[in-house]
């Protein structure tokens, strides 16, 4: 059994393996596959609670994964400020594997497209992959119909 504590290295190696055989498009296809097929629990959190659901999801996952981050929830905005990404740290600082050059891009492919499906605007900015710093900002645009701001009967 590959332990979940070893998974991040395996993940990075899998990205490299796919890239070497099929190029970036193959890696992107894999990331899209994860987003479409594996993130059902995140979808459920968003579908039922919108921005609050995102806050709950990442509070749980980042709580288990470790690292240092600040999650901010406003009425219309959810922000992850990642100061020390636990997975980027393992890939870039452990010396266990040669870091896959686009490792941090997987988050850009996994999360923003999925969240946009629910009517939100998403910005994802990698500040430093080597240092594990990034920010994801999710906003509910004014007047947008989202799970936490459904259309009123009088609007339809």
């Amino acid at each position: 059994m590959i332990s979940c504590t070893e998974f991040i290295w395996v993940y990075s190696e899998l990205f490299r393996y796919l890239d070497e055989r099929g190029g970036k498009d193959e890696v992107f296809a894999f990331w899209k596959g994860i987003s479409d097929n594996f993130l059902g629990n995140l979808r459920e959190y968003i579908r039922t609670e919108g921005l609050k659901g995102m806050h709950k999801y990442w509070t749980h996952t980042l709580g288990e994964e470790g690292g240092r981050s600040i999650l901010t929830l406003y009425d219309d905005t959810f922000i992850i400020d990642m100061h020390d990404c636990p997975s980027a740290r393992l890939v870039h600082q452990s010396g266990r594997v040669a870091p896959y050059e686009s490792y941090c891009e997987h988050c850009r492919h996994l999360y923003p497209p999925l969240i946009r499906e629910y009517g939100y605007e998403v910005d994802y900015d990698v500040i430093s992959c080597e240092k594990g710093r990034c920010r994801m900002t999710v906003k509910r645009p004014p007047g947008a119909v989202t799970p936490d701001a459904p259309a009123r009967a009088s609007d339809s």
């Binding site: 590959i2 979940c4 504590t5 998974f7 993940y11 899998l14 594996f38 996952t61 994964e65 470790g66």
Partner: peptide, 14 residues
Amino acid sequence: ANVHKDFHGALSYG
């Protein structure tokens, strides 16, 4: 070590 068992599901998808 941090233990996030959802990674098993991601490995399975992989």
